[in-house]
Write a protein that binds this DNA or RNA. Structure first.
Lengths: 246, 246
DNA sequence: CGGTAGTGTGCGATTTACGAACAAATATCG
DNA sequence: CGATATTTGTTCGTAAATCGCACACTACCG
């Protein structure tokens, strides 16, 4: 309906860690927009304080963060779960997180970090693919089979580690298991040395709204023991949050 | 130049923690746009997956976070400082943060939390006013006097606690002190029970690019001791980062 | 010097935004 | 309870904006 707005948002999204500084032509190429249009978008962003221009390259300004945090702030989820996440994390001595599904990715909305075991640093707003993460499996398991299959696509899925399941049907099979168990276990599929366990978070009406997980360094213990150790505290937090989530 | 984009961004910013769900008319009132225009913006956002519409109210969708995180990802700052922040936080056993200045607010770009002492939860993208925070004082002290005074405005500044300095000239006086000391100390000005100390972060060319702070619960010790205890580790990290920042 | 890549600037055709008007829902009040 | 106000959502015609193309200009290189 409003082309200009959609184009401008696409321009913002064209910036990433790989391309923090872009020229007009680069943005035009990345977004498929005409150079003149990209220029107008970028100048508008610069005028609004959302971007900076040194005459050659454009950079996003901190003001852009207002857009994202407006969303985080509007979600009651982070505010409600953060205290319980901190508490849970303290009790079990491991990092815990809450995420929601956005397309084929999970988006972290809250996190209580303990020890750094991952190579990348996760924070609210960070994204990981759904198919190879414990929270992603939990969230996919809550969808109708056809929808989950559509999100996974025809495959093969990118192997983030040697242990990643790359066949969509293999992932679909784990989803059935997740539904039966009420939790998902991931053993070094997203990154070698990292294991995690996730449970779904339901609201008071019983709808699946998010996932809660614990991540820890891979050890020698069998995965079954992991479920025995972290299942109870996770389920306790899950139950506590059930009444608090709308 | 591109009115539609600017209006759409204003619509996104009109959402906040206080107003997570807004009707068309509410958005129109908050942004000063015509109802028809606000409607087009919102429908465009919904069509792009940035917002959700239940026929009555609009809500921002997680996809919006892509815009903000696109910016965080483009900033080399978070990636560079996060490991050193974690390390520093472990060594001194307190929460540490890095922020940059955006207008009259500081924006957190990285954070290593230890114990929760503040009533609000801070995360990358969070904002606080500059005038009453240690990092804000450091960043204001790096500006020309006239600019700092312009940002502070005519006053009086809102008193976030009984100890908040509300007179812009009083704040300006502390800035001179900050320049002389090379650090800023804040004693419960942003919130009762919370103290903090900040140092500036310079890049390799000597330009002020951010501020680094440590926050801790207020105790009985004099503020001077705080400077003696945390000054050395803060300055060590400050020096380590100097070469890494461009 | 010619080629390449990038930027800035008109200029029609098209699209969009504005404002008012209409329809529907909600609130107010006798 | 029913009728009138008031607010909200939607539609529509017109005026003004943008879009995409084309061309001129600069800088950089072989």
């Amino acid at each position: 309906m409003m082309g200009g707005l959609a184009k401008g948002l696409a321009v913002i999204e064209s910036f990433s860690a790989d391309r923090p500084r872009q020229s007009i032509a680069q943005v035009a190429a990345a977004t498929g927009l005409d150079r003149a249009t990209a220029r107008r978008c970028l100048l508008t962003l610069a005028q609004g304080g959302y971007a900076e221009y040194d005459g050659k390259f454009f950079t996003l300004a901190p003001r852009i963060l207002r857009l994202g945090t407006a969303c985080l702030a509007t979600m009651p989820l982070p505010r409600v779960v953060q205290p319980m996440l901190d508490d849970l994390s303290d009790r079990i001595g491991q990092s815990t997180s809450v995420s929601v599904l956005d397309g084929d990715e999970i988006v972290y909305v809250a996190r209580a970090a303990q020890l750094r075991v991952m190579s990348i640093s996760l924070m609210p707003g960070s994204r990981l693919p759904a198919y190879c993460t414990s929270m992603g499996r939990v969230l996919l398991a809550g969808l109708p089979e056809a929808e989950a299959r559509a999100i996974l696509g025809p495959g093969p899925l990118p192997a983030r580690s040697p242990r990643t399941l790359t066949d969509p049907e293999a992932v679909m099979a784990t989803l059935a298991r997740v539904r039966a168990d009420g939790h998902a276990l991931i053993d070094q599929e997203v990154e070698l040395g990292l294991r995690s366990m996730a449970v779904p978070l339901f609201n008071a009406r019983g709808a699946l709204v998010a996932a809660l997980n614990v991540g820890l360094a891979a050890g020698s213990e069998p995965m079954a023991e992991l479920a025995a150790r972290f299942g109870p505290p996770l389920r306790a937090t899950q139950a506590d949050l059930r009444a608090l989530l709308s």
